[in-house]
Structures are given as C-alpha cells and as structure tokens.
Design a protein around this nucleic acid. Structure first.
Lengths: 216, 216, 216, 216
DNA sequence: CTTTAAACGAGACGGTACGTCGTGTCTTGCC
DNA sequence: GGCAAGACACGACGTACCGTCTCGTTTAAAG
C-alpha cells in the first residue's frame, strides 16, 4: 500500500495498523508538511523541489516518496491544512456573515504559500483525475461547510426561505460556493487587486441584491 | 532588444524595423503559437517543453528564445489568441446577454489548451510581476470589453441605471468581471462540474436578483 | 564482536561460544552463501545486491550484516567454497599433473559465479587491506597446496631436484602458482579465449621447457 | 550516433565529419580522461562516480554520457592511454628484453589508477561482450605488439627459431602474452607481493628454460 | 518451568549515486 | 543579422541500494 497518507486517510486499518517492520515516523509527516509550506513561501510553486523539501524537513527524499506520489499531492495536503483553520462565527446577519467569510478567505489567499500553490494544483488537476479528487475531498468539499452553516443561520433568522435538504439545496450550496470562492480568487490572483473593505462591501451587496438590486 | 514579441507588440514593424540582417520570419510566430496550443492539448502545461514546441513548429529552440523569454510568456500569448475570439452579440436582454457570455466563456474553458494553461500561468504570475502584467494586458483587460458592452446595452434598454464613466463605473465593471469570470472558472476547473444550461440559468438568476431575490 | 563469520573462522566456537540468547542459525549461513552464488550467476558482481541475496536466502538483511561486513566479504567466502573442491590426483608425471590442474582451474573459471566474482574482489582488494588478507587466506594460500603437492610428487619421481623446505622453496612455489593461476586467468578472462586441450598442451610445454625448449 | 568516442573510433565519418550543430569539444575528452585517472587514484574503482568525474573535469554529467555509455567504457579508455606508453627498446638479448618488459609492466601496475581499474573492468567484462571487445581492442591487442617485437628480435639474433607468420605464430604470441601479463598481474594484484629484480630474474629464468631448466 | 537475551523478519529511515530530462546559452555553418 | 542543428553547464527528477534503526516475535540456554 504505497503512498497511503497517514493523516487524511483515516488509516485505522483494522486494529493493529500495519503489522511488522518499523512503523512510519509520525513526526516526519508534520515536519514535511510544514517544510513544504515554508518552501512554498520562499520559492513559490515552480521552484519548489522535492529535494529541497526533504532537506528542510530533515528527512530523506525516499521518505517523501513513500508517503506522497509527487509534488502535487504533497502540496495539496500541505495547503489543505491551512484551509481547515477557516471559521464562521455568527456575525448577526447574513450580510455580515458573508462579509466575514469573504474577508477571511481573502486573508488566506494573501498568504504566499496559498497564493502560489492553489492555482498551481488546480492547473495540474485539469489533466489528473486523482489529483482533482484529492483537491475536492481535501479542500473544496470540506470548506462548503462554511456555506452550509451560513445558509442555515440565515434561514433561522428568516433572511432566506427554508429549503428541504436534498439535491436542490446542494445545488444552491455549490453555486454560492463557486460564486464566493471563485470571485475572491479571481480578484486576488487574476485581477491582482486588493480585497479591501470597500470591495467586500460592493461584492456583498451584489450577492445580496443582484445587478438590479439598486435599480428602481 | 531581446524578446520583443513581433505580433502583439506592434514593435519593430513600423517602416524599416531592425536595420540589417535577415528579418524574423513572420510565419514562424504563427507556427510557434499554434504548436504551443497543440502541445498544451497533448501534454498539458507541466509536461510541455520548449524543445517539444520548437520541434512541432519546425523551428530551432534558439528561435523561440529570441522571441519569448520562456514558457510562461509563450503560453500567455498562445492562449490570449483564444480569448480574442469571444464575442457578445445582442441577445435582447441583460439576462440573455449574461447567459450567452457565461456559456461562451465556459466553452472556452472546455478546450484543453485553455483549461490547463490558464490556471498555470496565473499560478506562476503570483511570483512574477512582469508575467502578471502580461496576463492582465493580454487577457484580462482585453476581455473586460465584454462586460462594458453588456452594461452599455443594458443601460440603453433601461435595465440598469446610467452611470457616468469614471473610476466608480470601472470599479463596477471590475467587480462584475471578477464575479462572472471567477465563478465560471471555479465551477469548471475547481469544482469540475459541468457548466450546463440549468446551472447557467441559476447563476444568472443569482446575478440578477441576489441571494434574496426569491425571498418574499 | 560483530561480523564474526561463524563458518570459516573457527572463531568463538571453542567451548561455550557466546553466552546466552538465541544462537545464530547454522542453516542461514549455508543458505546465504548458496544464494550469493546463485545471484552471482544470474546478475554478475556489479548487479548483485545485499537485498537480493537476503531475499533469495529467505533471510532478513540484518542477518546478512550481522555476519558479513559487506558484499566483498560475503562474496569472497561464497567463492572460496568453490575453490576448495579442487583436487590433484596423481596422473603419473609432472607434465600430466600440470595439465590436469590447469584444466581443473579453467573449468572452475568457466563457472559464471567464479568468473564474475574473482576479478571483482581482487579489484576491490587493491584498496582494502583487510579484504586482501581475506582473499589470501581464504583462497590463494589454500590453493598453493596443489602446487606443493605437485612438486613433491615430481621430486619423488625424480623429475625435479630436491630442495630443502624453506624460504627458497616457498619462493619457487609462489612463482609457479602465480605463473599457472595468472596465465589461466588471463587466458580465460582477459583474452577471453577457450582453455582447450591444444592450448593446455602448449602452455604445459612452455612451462616444462621454456621459450627455448624447442630450440636447438 | 550516441556514445561514438571521437578518439578511439577513427570517426573520420566521410569527409566533413558530422555536418551541423556545435561540434563536440575536443578539450573535454582529454579533460575527462585525465579526471577519470585522477579520480581512480583518489577513490578507487568502486567509489568513483560519474558525477565526481564530471565535476573534476569541469564538465556536465550529460557530456560524459554523450561520449561514453557508462563508467566501464570510460575507465577502459582512460587506462588504455596508460598502456600506450609502454615501450620495448632493444636490450641486446631475449632474456634482457623479457626482464625489461616485465619490469615496465609491473611499474604500470604499481600506479594506483591502473591497479584498481584493470581488474575491475575485466570483472565487468565477464558479463558484457561489448565491454570485452572494447578491452581487447583498446588494451590487449595493442600491447601484443611488445611480444611480437621481442620475438622478431630474438629470431633475428638466433635465440629463437624462425616461424612463418600465420595462425601458429599468432597462437604462440597469444600464449606468451598471457603468460607474461597474467603472471605479473597475479603477482602484483592477487598475491600482492613486490615485483622486484630478484623475482623478475626467477620468472625470466623459468620462462627461458622451464621448470626442468635447472634439472640435470 | 520461567526468565533472559540475543537472533530474527519486516520494513522505515537518512544517505548517495544513478542515468535522464528540461532549461537557457553557446557555437558551428548555411542562408 | 536570422536560422537549424546540436553541444554545453546546470540542476531536478524519481529510483535503487546502502547500511542502520526500530519494531514485535521466536528460540535456545541459564537459572
């Protein structure tokens, strides 16, 4: 079973895990992921090398390859950890919640390791189905929780109509997620303009009321 | 003057261009960009090599490097040509125009050479200011024309209020562009879900009326 | 006391050997040496690996390293066993004895495990004194017995003059051994020509009578 | 045409050699072979690495591999140059000529680069026919000239009977070459004893008169 | 019998070298 | 001067072995 990441796979393989032989170092995993983020900051995606990561982590190259199939997989796991720090406290209104999550996401994208890595792995994933799945399960699907949470609160507040859980509600969740995440990413990385409060307010207003929202 | 692109830069084409010696082959430029797109389709961004492009174009590697500084610049120019084919005929209403442009953009992103190249060069641009500028001038700013055109038509139809040209209007254009382009890219490449008519309709509705658009 | 070969070194076997704990498997030694010869046949010296030997012998790598310091030592012991099968029956005359021993030695060098291993360990021994000693004691000195035996018989037959045992006789033995072993090795491995009866006869004649032997 | 050594192959491919492209650096060849000998002295065969040679020669690893298929071929060419320095001036008698050539050959084998490399490549050649041929053509056959020259002189002096040139004479040459080269190599590298004047005299005497030479 | 301590299998580990590939530059000789 | 061809220095790749280590298990002799 090569490349079986210990962390993300809940590798609770039965009871006694793997039977014989020296067990894999748990510390190495953490060191490697941290070293990967460090290297991303210093070098960016394209100049990051497996050899450099292994050196920073104080680990042999083979140890990297025993756990990850390559740079892509490694970097996905390294940045996925960043995304898990996102939170959505109740700000009192749908509008405030949206503004908060947009800002938080923008701050994440301001980190150099996230900026450089995110688009790169997405680019790679266009030709690698396994990688695409890994990104979806490690990052995308996990962060939809923020949208779901926000909608539930808004519904509880009466700001949005109730909708039965089901494929319809899922489709709405997906759409909102694509709009928010996509727009912020585009603003931050493609347009390369700052995500400041003014812009966030304008974007939130558009989200709330649409293009015609201020029309008579 | 190294790396002065012949095509997009009006560059040395003026009257007598460069003084002496053999002039650069104009045919080579087109062949190289076409070969680049071919190679992107076959290999994807990360496996595309300058050597391979030169071989496909029937051109020496030195000829490539005489015209482009590297893979990044070459690919930006190669995909920029694709974007210039986008159009926005008058579909009769703002809603219809939005749906049309979203679909057209999605079709562009369905092409493998665009899928794989677009995110990759954006990723590279996070650490390369010159590349970022090149992307903006060659792709982003050029396509904002579609948003500007759509807004003007909608204003003429009375669907949107007039706004004086100025930084305020520009900011609105930028926002709308980020929302549309970002959302479609995210749907197509990150979520990796189809951009079909159902989804386009839902996205357009959201754009028109906002999250609360269907609320009582 | 690591790397204390059990077999050839009479080592610590005296009375109680090592005190307590599980004793080393005697079967493993034989299995390892046989596996080494097998691997030499299949792969040759340079592609033989410790891991491969351990797998063939059904033994863990640590078990190898507990007994031999490395590939060199292991292979010397493995081929030394081959050399111990050489014999010298009395063929009736010095000439016949010489022919017999030359043929026997050539047949040994026809075995792939001996061909590939012998020169290799000698090559290694040029930079490793301990290895050189191991080769001498395990192979070279042991086989001088054949020369000594042949000389004694020839002296008994009156074919060669008696010589008192001593450094002078040893020097003669060494010289004859170098001439016979060296020449056969060179013919078989360097010149890579067959050691057939014709050649053996010519070599023996040269040995018996010298270059001028047939001269008037 | 990969790995086509410039030097040894009389690569006089037609008239204009290879047509287009940058020609291979002639200086690189010499630098590489010298670096190889240096490295052999410092490290010995088994610790010599292609990377180290390339570094010493101030040359890229790819440049090595463009010219030689691997370590074996490279080292054969490097030591072959050493052998070409052997000479055989007329010492006045067959006996003196033999002593001279033996001493010269022994001095060559005293050089660390020759000691360590010679046996190693022979060992490798037992499983690589192409390498065996390379050794024969680059080293063995070239040095038989010494034997041929010595015999011709001895025949002119009347020390040896004339023999028509032909397969019979060739066989005699081969035998003498195997005896001299094999014996000296065995003395120097396997027995690891000094090749001093005393030993050379004894060996020459044996060669001249045979085992029974001193017998009544 | 236990106890005890080493041998044992498995396999992860830090290293080093491998031979290949891509980059961007250079050196040829022909246009 | 442009251009095709291809050699070049450089540096990363992913793999293979090395020899060591750390587990848990086995095994014979000592107590």
């Amino acid at each position: 079973m090569p490349h079986a990441r210990s962390g993300s796979d809940a590798s609770t393989s039965g009871s006694t895990s793997g039977r014989t032989g020296r067990p894999r170092s748990a510390a190495a995993d953490a060191a490697i992921l941290a070293a990967t983020r460090d290297a991303l900051c210093d070098l960016g995606w394209s100049k990051l090398t497996m050899g450099d990561v292994s050196a920073r982590a104080g680990v042999a190259k083979t140890t990297l390859y025993r756990r990850w199939a390559g740079k892509n997989e490694l970097v996905v796991d390294a940045v996925a950890e960043l995304f898990d720090t996102l939170e959505l406290p109740d700000r009192g209104s749908l509008e405030a919640d949206v503004e908060y999550v947009v800002l938080q996401f923008a701050q994440l994208l301001a980190r150099p390791e996230a900026r450089t890595a995110l688009m790169a792995v997405v680019a790679e994933s266009t030709r690698d189905e396994a990688l695409r799945d890994r990104i979806r399960s490690a990052i995308v699907e996990r962060q939809k929780r923020l949208v779901v949470l926000g909608r539930e609160r808004a519904q509880a507040r009466g700001e949005l109509p109730y909708e039965e859980a089901g494929p319809l509600a899922d489709r709405a969740t997906d759409l909102i997620f694509d709009v928010i995440a996509g727009t912020v990413v585009h603003r931050a990385l493609v347009s390369a303009e700052p995500v400041d409060e003014l812009w966030v307010a304008a974007f939130t207003a558009l989200l709330m009321h649409g293009l015609q929202g201020t029309a008579p």
